[in-house]
């Protein structure tokens, strides 16, 4: 049996992942039908080496989708702001105009139980828990984007205090630096 790994979504308003100095910025309306177009637009100048096929586009689309669908609730009057930086690693800050991710702690608890069931090879429980249903979830939500995101964003995935803004970073093997641990010691 492998090692039990339980990651967590972290809230840290003052985290360095929210330092947008030197990052480029782009803004979008909240059009659900254009989520993948927005991701492609942000990645237009992204070096090929960082793209990993379409994995980076997929992971960025998930963050944009969360902001537009859950944050801004597809209200076309609400904007989504994306800061991005492709120097040595990939960094994004994505901010919506919603009320914030109120279910963050509940999602962490769901994820912990799901990982424990997987570790125990209790597939009935795991399958029963395979999708997260929060108060605002619908049939198409499953929390799977966040499970994958916690692994993909290997330098951290941090929410601000309001929880309507997320900062992420992915480091790549062979880069000039080692990935630092996410800064979660300040609150």
């Amino acid at each position: 049996m492998g090692r039990l790994i339980v990651r967590k979504l972290i809230v840290d308003e003052r985290n360095e992942l929210f330092d947008a100095q030197g990052m480029r910025r782009i803004e979008f309306p909240s059009e659900f039908e254009r989520i993948r177009d927005y991701a492609a637009e942000v990645l237009r100048d992204c070096p090929e080496a960082f793209r990993e096929g379409n994995l980076l586009e997929q992971q960025l689309s998930e963050i944009i989708k969360n902001g537009i669908k859950h944050g801004n609730r597809c209200d076309p009057a609400k904007r989504l702001r994306v800061w991005f930086d492709f120097r040595k690693r990939v960094r994004f800050i994505v901010e919506d105009e919603g009320e914030g991710f109120a279910d963050l702690e509940a999602w962490n608890e769901f994820y912990r139980k799901r990982q424990e069931a997987l570790h125990a090879e209790d597939f009935d429980t795991f399958l029963a828990m395979a999708s997260y249903r929060g108060p605002r979830s619908d049939d198409m939500d499953g929390g799977n984007s966040l499970v994958a995101a916690l692994e993909y964003w290997n330098g951290g995935m941090i929410y601000n205090g309001v929880r309507n803004k997320v900062g992420v970073v992915r480091w790549y093997t062979g880069g000039s630096d080692q990935p630092p641990a996410p800064r979660s010691d300040r609150s």
Partner: peptide, 20 residues
Amino acid sequence: VEYLDSTGAGSLIRIAQALR
């Protein structure tokens, strides 16, 4: 299939749950 996202993963989960 060249592109699969969390909604695609969710679809597979719902099918797996129904088959289970």
